[in-house]
Amino acid sequence: MAALPGFRFSLALSGALLLALPALAGDSLFKPKPRADALLPVDQAFQFQGARREGGALKLQWTVAPGYYLYRHMLKVSVDSPAKLSLAPLQLPKGEGKQDPEFGAVEIYRGQLLAHIPLAADVPLPRTLRVRYQGCADIGVCYPPQTKLVAVP
C-alpha cells in the first residue's frame, strides 16, 4: 500500500502530460494563428477557363490551384439559352478517390480538369451554358458553389 501514493502521482503526471502535450503541439489559442492570407480567392483557387468547340464536342476546362480540389458530384452543366435546348450528359474523367469524413467515398479533381459534352450533328448549339462547380482547400475550408454563364463560341 505504501507504494500507492507514488504510483498515483505518476499516473496523474501521465494523464496531465497526455492531455497537455497535444494542445501544446496543436492549434493552440495561444500560438500565433496561421497566416490567414494562405487562402486564395475562389476564382484563383478554381480557374474556370470557359467552353470551346473542338471536334464533335464542347470542351470545358478548369485549373485547380495546388492545395485545392473540386468535387466531381458538384460539377453540373446545363443550357441557359435557348431555354428548351438540351445537351448530352457532361463527360468527366475519373477523379482521385477521397474518403470524405462527411460524404463518404467521393471523387475529386486537382490540377487540370478537362470535361466534354458530345455534340449531336443534327442538334443546334446552345448560345449560353450555365456551369456550376464547388470545391474546397486541403486546409479544411470550402468555397460556395460557383455558377458561371458562359458563351459557346
Partner: peptide
C-alpha cells in the same frame, strides 16, 4: 514503480505530441 510510471507518461506524451503534429492540416501552396 515511479520510474515505470514516469516512463509510461513520457511514452504516452510523445504519442500524444506525435498524433497532434501528424494531424495538423497542410498549408495550401500559393
Amino acid at each position: 514503480q515511479a520510474l515505470g510510471a514516469l516512463l509510461i507518461a513520457v511514452v504516452a506524451a510523445s504519442g500524444g505530441y506525435w498524433v497532434a503534429r501528424h494531424f495538423q492540416p497542410a498549408e495550401p501552396v500559393i
